[in-house]
Design a protein around this nucleic acid. Structure first.
Lengths: 139, 139
DNA sequence: CTACTTTAGTCAGAGAATCTGACCAGTACA
DNA sequence: TGTACTGGTCAGATTCTCTGACTAAAGTAG
């Protein structure tokens, strides 16, 4: 079976479940918004960097950040280091979603570990982390 | 690091590269079209089944199949077993893309194996296949 | 056989996510 | 100091996806 599909299926499972859990907790995010939001660093992140790391154009990233800003999940502050740039920062409102997302992630990992066994789950994680070294354009 | 992201990054790599390879060979497919096309079985597949397996509504699947049909990559034939249904079948034109896609997939797997080592690559594949047992809604 | 329910698929309309191209305002450097 | 680069926005179009309503065929219970 095709390696792409093998990766796609569990990835979709994770995305769907985390999004559902977050929204069930009273948030209102779309998949695309979540993907961007997830990549905003603790000190704030530039739009260009968000676009790169999420692999979309800066226009698309800007569009999504606009929505997140309007909904109060992020704010844009001037970047003291560069007059052209602004830093996208996560607000407290969005921060409240982090434990919800983490809880769901932990639940998923626990289920998977139950099915795969501890050893195989650890191998999966390790292999994926190493794979990131050659497939992640943002590292 | 988040298991969802760990799965997402290499998955995107595969999708992008396979699509690029296919299109470089003279085809003209979008990501969404490719995802549907990939799931059409050798004997033809019903729209409803395509929709389920690709996890989209039947309207979306129909929309994509329309495009594929217009471009000559699939045809719809009546299903002899059910008067309501039609079978989506891959045409020879689309079949010509299969070796191209497979070659790129093989190239990617070879690269990954070079980076991970034979053992870890086999473990990755095995873990993902087992994971499919609990995350693949279409099996 | 008839009436009800389910299933396969389409039509219509709308919203979300994405892109290309053009542009402006700061920054960096030769 | 001017020329090239970088961060970001504006405008417009396309693609993908959904919800809701519908038709026609098939299955099922009486």
């Amino acid at each position: 079976m095709n390696i792409g599909l093998l990766l796609f299926i569990p990835n979709r499972e994770v995305e769907n479940r985390v999004l559902a859990a977050v929204n069930a907790a009273g948030f209102d995010l779309t998949q695309a918004q979540q993907r961007v939001l997830m990549r905003v660093g603790p000190e704030g992140t530039r739009l260009t960097v968000l676009a790169e790391s999420a692999q979309v154009t800066k226009q698309t990233a800007g569009f999504l950040v606009d929505q997140l800003e309007k909904a109060g999940y992020v704010e844009r502050v001037p970047d003291p280091a560069d007059g052209r740039a602004r830093l996208v920062k996560v607000t407290d409102k969005a921060l409240a979603a982090v434990p919800v997302a983490n809880a769901e992630l932990a639940a998923i990992e626990a289920e998977w570990e139950r099915h795969l066994g501890k050893r195989r789950m650890a191998q999966l994680r390790e292999a994926l982390e190493r794979l990131g070294e050659i497939t992640d354009p943002y590292r």
